[in-house]
Nucleic acid binder design. Structure first.
Length: 169
DNA sequence: GCCAACGTTGGC
DNA sequence: GCCAACGTTGGC
């Protein structure tokens, strides 16, 4: 609890669940479940805390990049899908007493006017160490440095200004 | 849709 | 415990 606020990047395929789905969700919140990678699981279980901020990343479908920001509103709890036999995320080795997979809850915070694209992230001189820009990086839950988070949000805001019709008057 | 990079599985 | 085979991710 004494831990400082942390920053994360959560990947999702917008076709499956994009930032617009988060906006439309009840209370604009959702359980971030279905994570089935141990490294990502460990982050969810051990490190993601209420109050942390999340870059909401759209993968696979253009425009690929950061679509907005969400807030962590509930820390790790057992991913219910692991106990659901009808779910593709069902895990027969998991039990409520000893869950194997964890979820957190995130709540919508902001959507950028335009996606901050992966291309832009790769091109930015201060984001060369950002994990998502690295080749072959498939982790769906990634830690983000505070400075990296600040820069990406700034890039998102800059776009909002560019697109503001008032600027054209 | 392709395929490189990765993670997991399972035979030995 | 190694590693080939397989399945998945995700940029292009």
């Amino acid at each position: 609890m004494a831990d400082e606020k942390r920053y994360w990047l959560f990947k999702s395929e917008p076709e499956v669940f994009g930032i617009d789905d988060l906006i439309l969700a009840e209370n604009q919140a959702t359980a971030w479940d279905g994570v089935r990678n141990y490294q990502a699981r460990n982050f969810l279980r051990d490190d993601v805390q209420v109050g942390d901020e999340v870059l909401f990343y759209h993968s696979r479908n253009a425009p690929i990049g950061v679509a907005g920001v969400a807030l962590v509103t509930r820390a790790a709890f057992a991913d219910p899908l692991q106990f659901d036999e009808s779910s593709k995320y069902h895990d027969e080795k998991a039990t409520p007493e000893e869950p194997r997979w964890y979820a957190v809850e995130i709540t919508f915070q902001q959507k950028f006017e335009e996606v901050v694209t992966l291309k832009e992230l790769k091109a930015h001189p201060d984001l060369t160490e950002m994990l998502v820009t690295k080749r072959g990086q498939r982790l769906s839950i990634q830690p983000v440095q505070p400075e990296e988070f600040r820069i990406v949000v700034e890039l998102g805001r800059a776009k909002d200004l560019e697109d503001d019709p008032l600027d054209l008057i």
